[in-house]
Simulated scan of single mutants.
Amino acid sequence: MRIGVVTFPGSLDDHDARRAVDLCGGESVALWHRDADLRGVDAVVIPGGFSYGDYLRAGAISRFAPVMTEVIRAAAGGMPVLGICNGFQILCESHLLPGAMIQNDHRTFICRDQRLRVESTATAWTSQFEQGEEITIVLKNQDGQFVADEPTLDRLEGEGRVAFRYLGENPNGSYRDIAGITDERGTVVGLMPHPEHCVETGFGPSLDGRRFFTSVIERVVSA
C-alpha cells in the first residue's frame, strides 16, 4: 500500500512520517507541495512543521498549494487523509475539517508526552484502537488550540466525530479538550499530537502511534 507524505517549505516531520509508514508496513511516497499528481497513492499524510513559515496563519498558505487541490479532490472521493499538527491546521484551512487552530492559550510553544483518550474507532486511521482506550503520544505545537462555535462543537460531539480528547491538564486550551476530529465519513482525520514519533522502540514514550498507520493499511487492503 502506497501512502503519500506531503512536503511543504517549512515541513519538518515529513521524513519521520515517511519512516513511520515504512516501519508499519506501508510504502511511503514523497509528494511535493507543487505536485499536481498524487502519483497513485492510496492515502495521504500531511505532516507537522511550519509550512510556508506560518507567515499568514498556520496552514493558510498551504491550502492553496497545487498538491492540496489534488488532496481535496481525492478526499472527496473517499481517500484516507491524516493531518498531523500543521497538517491538522491545513485540513481546517482547506475546509476538509471544521473549526480552526489558533495560538495556544498560554501563548507559548509546548513539547511533552501527552495522554489521550480514543473517542472514535470508526475512522480509517483509528480502527485498531479500543473505544475509550488511553494512549500516550508526543505533542509539540504553538498554534494547537482547536476552536469552533457551539453548534459546530455540538455537531461533532453528536455525530461521534471527536476522535481524540486530551486527558489531564488541557495543554493548549482546545475547546472541550478536543485533540483530534474526523470528517463525516471517517476517512479524513486531523490531530495535534504526533503519532509518527511513537512507532519505534527507544524513540518516543510509546508505540501507540503505530496503530494509526496499521489501521489505514488494513482498511485500504481489505476494501
Score class of each variant (00 low, 15 high):
Arg34Leu: 09
Gln142Asn: 13
Gly78Gln: 12
Phe50Leu: 09
Cys92Gln: 13
Ile90Ser: 02
Trp125Gly: 01
Leu153His: 04
Glu119Gly: 02
Ile178Thr: 07
Asp54Cys: 09
Arg34Ile: 02
Asp16Tyr: 08
Tyr166Gly: 00
Leu12Met: 14
Met68Glu: 06
Arg112Glu: 15
Trp125Thr: 04
Val162Ala: 01
Glu70Cys: 10
Gln103Trp: 03
Ala124Met: 07
Leu12Asn: 15
Ser222Asn: 14
Gly158Arg: 13
Thr182Arg: 15
Ala60Glu: 06
Leu82Glu: 07
Ile90Pro: 04
Trp125Arg: 00
Arg185Ala: 14
Ile102Met: 06
Ile90Lys: 01
Thr123Met: 02
Trp32Gly: 01
Val220Asp: 00
Arg19Thr: 12
Ser11Phe: 13
His33Phe: 15
Ala58Leu: 15
Gly180Thr: 03
Asp37Trp: 10
Thr187Asn: 15
Ser222Asp: 07
Glu130Lys: 11
Ala30Glu: 14
Leu191Asp: 01
Met68Gln: 06
Phe146Thr: 04
Gly10Arg: 09
Gly77Thr: 05
Thr126Gly: 00
His15Leu: 14
Ile3Tyr: 04
Asp14Trp: 12
Asp14Pro: 13
Asp154Gln: 15
Asp177Met: 03
Phe64Leu: 02
Met68Val: 07
Glu27Phe: 15
Asp149Val: 06
Gly78Thr: 10
Cys24Glu: 10
Tyr166Cys: 05
Val118Phe: 10
Ile3Arg: 05
Val118Arg: 07
Ser222Pro: 08
Val81Ser: 08
Pro195Ala: 11
Leu91Met: 08
Ala17Met: 05
Ile137Met: 04
Phe164Gln: 00
Ser11Trp: 09
Ser222Gln: 14
Arg39Asp: 08
Gly40Thr: 11
Leu97Val: 06
Tyr55Val: 14
Thr108Leu: 12
Leu96Phe: 01
Thr214Ala: 13
Val162Leu: 02
Glu133Asn: 06
Glu200Met: 12
Val6Trp: 03
Gly77His: 08
Ser127Asp: 05
Ile84Met: 11
Thr214Met: 10
Ile135Gly: 08
